[in-house]
Amino acid sequence: MTDRRRTYIDIHILQSVPPSNLNRDDAGSPKQAIYGGARRLRVSSQAWKRATRLAFKNDLGIPADQLGTRTKRVSTLLAARLTERARVSAEAATRLSNALLAHDLKVTAGKKATESAYLLFFGRSQLDAIVALVSDRASELTALADDALTKAVAELPVRAQLMAKHPIDVALFGRMVADIPALNVDAATQVAHALSVHPVEVEFDYYTAVDDEKTREEDAGAAMMGTVEFTSATLYRYATLDVQHLAENLDNDIEVTIQAVRAFMRAFVTSMPTGHQNTFAHRTVPSLVSYMVRTDQPVNLVSAFESPVRSTHGIAARAALSLAREANRTSTSFGLTPMAVSTVYDPASLAGMSSHQDRDPAAEAAQAFGPVCGLDESIDAIITAVRPRLDGSAES
């Protein structure tokens, strides 16, 4: 029998980004927040969750039919499948698609007839399951009058198809449909807004562009000009994954759950929001990634940076030491000691740093972060730690 005790994987990341505008507000400025009395750069959780979802397909190569899509065009996608697999005309498929969605799902049209009134997050395989409900009688159904068609599809379990066999991104990030609470899926992950560990100032890049086909004698001025706001920062990023809840969202399929855990652990670390990426080429990799398996509660260690890190000789190493000290404090003072820890970082970067209470900075880091590993090795170590808690072989 599967062990249902809670198991959380906390992911702590320190990542330095050069001049960039990863995630802008409605005025085009990099998003910001006040924390610890200092203005910090902020990257919203939504921005990094979308980057993670895109990484599943683009970087990890997970097939699209195993992933979800968030769209208002659910009726259009369903109609296209009906046309292809049920061999009905596009017009008939659209009519049948609308009937299927309107009764059991109460999906209503938006401003455009081809779009629903709200975004719906679902798996492509779930649409295939809906098609399977009617594929062998699609011609019969589309020949009915509107009232008869509505009555005929009323008994079909359309909603049930969207509540089973969730793709991994729906299982991870959840689904909220205010108009149809029965379609809601509680997320197995929580992602914090990334914050800079130090104060930031927003700067401006003034740019001009010239017309290549004009001579200097004809016009020496710029054809256009403008500004882009940017900043640079060392970010603290945090996410937590409830492994048992993820398994529940994935119909308790252990191997699929392990696949999803592995995918999230890598994609969240290596992904990057794409705001102004062509302008700034800001894609970096983290200086520290620490995976911590907990059996009590998730612990966001952002308090390590409530007092902002200030330095003119590099931020990342000092931030790593602050993070280690906060991790050790939560263990010592609150008894919140991780069951397993695996970390990617460079201990040599801590050499020569100041200590306190006669502690060696490298020893403090080793206590908090465990042995040094590469990313693949760290992920494997965490999978090894959590698998027994999924398959029921863990000791009680």
Results as ranks from 00 to 15, higher is better:
188 A>L: 06
118 Y>G: 03
176 M>A: 07
119 L>Y: 15
103 H>M: 04
169 D>R: 12
104 D>M: 03
123 G>Q: 08
185 V>M: 04
186 D>I: 12
78 L>H: 04
91 E>C: 00
87 R>D: 14
115 E>I: 02
155 E>A: 12
70 R>M: 03
179 D>N: 12
107 V>D: 00
92 A>P: 08
93 A>V: 06
82 L>F: 05
173 F>V: 05
108 T>Q: 13
86 A>I: 07
136 D>H: 12
184 N>E: 01
199 P>N: 11
160 A>Q: 15
177 V>M: 06
137 R>M: 10
94 T>P: 00
74 V>T: 14
146 D>I: 09
97 S>Q: 03
89 S>G: 11
100 L>E: 00
126 Q>W: 02
90 A>L: 04
73 R>W: 00
74 V>D: 02
180 I>Y: 04
162 L>E: 01
150 T>R: 15
141 L>Q: 11
166 H>R: 12
178 A>W: 01
141 L>T: 08
134 V>R: 10
141 L>Y: 13
100 L>K: 12
188 A>D: 03
100 L>W: 01
94 T>K: 15
154 A>S: 15
149 L>A: 09
152 A>H: 11
181 P>T: 00
195 L>A: 01
118 Y>F: 13
185 V>Y: 04
173 F>T: 04
170 V>C: 03
159 R>E: 15
135 S>F: 06
177 V>W: 00
183 L>S: 00
122 F>S: 02
148 A>N: 11
75 S>R: 14
119 L>M: 11
74 V>S: 02
124 R>Q: 13
